[in-house]
Nucleic acid binder design. Sequence first.
DNA 1: GGTATTGAATGATCATGCTCAGTGAGTATG
DNA 2: CATACTCACTGAGCATGATCATTCAATACC
Lengths: 203, 203
Amino acid sequence: MTANMKGDQPSRQQRKSATRQALLRAAQDVLKAHGLTGTTTRAIAKQAGVASGTLFVHFADVNALVEALLDEHIAAALAQAYRTLPRNGDVVKRLLHVAGTLYASYLREPELAKAYLAASLFTPVAGELSVRLAAFQTWVIGEINAAVAARAIPDIDRQLAFAAFFSLYFGMLVAGLNGMLTRKQQLANLDGALRRLLQLEAA
Amino acid sequence: MTANMKGDQPSRQQRKSATRQALLRAAQDVLKAHGLTGTTTRAIAKQAGVASGTLFVHFADVNALVEALLDEHIAAALAQAYRTLPRNGDVVKRLLHVAGTLYASYLREPELAKAYLAASLFTPVAGELSVRLAAFQTWVIGEINAAVAARAIPDIDRQLAFAAFFSLYFGMLVAGLNGMLTRKQQLANLDGALRRLLQLEAA
DNA sequence: GGTATTGAATGATCATGCTCAGTGAGTATG
DNA sequence: CATACTCACTGAGCATGATCATTCAATACC
């Protein structure tokens, strides 16, 4: 292996990474310009200045590209959510804070989000997002552990609690993306359902 | 209009209806024989003995065909569920009875169900299924109305209740189709979550 | 009965997601 | 250096979902 000094030609790794980034940015551009149904892999490749086959060198299929794109949003949103977590709120308030931040993030790229959620429903998430999802589950269960330990809420089966929380979170997300609920309603429904589920009165 | 007497040639309507049925049966056959990914519109058309374009005369797109196919299952399942509804159970028991029957129906054609659910997440259901969904919502809210009127459960916002119920129902359905939950766990989670949501102790 | 109209069915054709044998610049080895 | 090898990249080609001008038997109208 040769160290890459100043003035060197870009190494193969650098070129590859640059191509991948170009494809991601091109995909964003084309999506914004033509919407989801009007976006083709050829258009993305052309916009990125590469051949049509190159896209599949970097992403197994279109959904992998969408996942990578969406992961950038989710990562930023989650980081912000954790950073601005209310210190003195109850469990539900903290869960809602994170959910609300994620909703806002998804709503910023609704077409992207719809495409990804539909495709990934029965195609177990892979890549960066799967790691993030596992971490999210751990965090949620940690929050519930803490609340139970503090006797803020009665004990509850953790699997049940997470499955129910995620179902409600996901359901309100979909309803919101479909335009069936406003963001306020999304959060109000999630709040009401979670407080009943965890048997925690409003603060 | 001419009445169609015995010995007449089949009318155009009859032929059309027969073609549609042939396509539905052909789709079932091909799906069972080759699985979802191995099924093509051309194969279905060939099996039905019609040209490739004919499929799209009867169904706007593949998902419309899948919806029609799935609707046959759902209709039968719902009819059976309503017919065998426990008369003396509480709200949750009755909701669970219907949910359980639907789960079993979906699990009988898991590939079909996955294809349809993924495609319809952000493509509002049309056709027969949309009518059935509306009727289902009416029935669920009716059940809740009755339970509230009978003072079996505390009052609850109907929109919240249905949104939460459907989210939980859908979430456990997906988890089951993904093999993350057994049918027993699906129902146990739904039971636990609903009892907490509606604040109804186990019978 | 004769004629015009409708619309189910056809299949060639298109657009698209994805594949893969081939190419050549970059990299390791001696 | 010279040589062998690796691998990102290419773009023609494939299979498939979907379209649409065309066809012609069933139907409606006189």
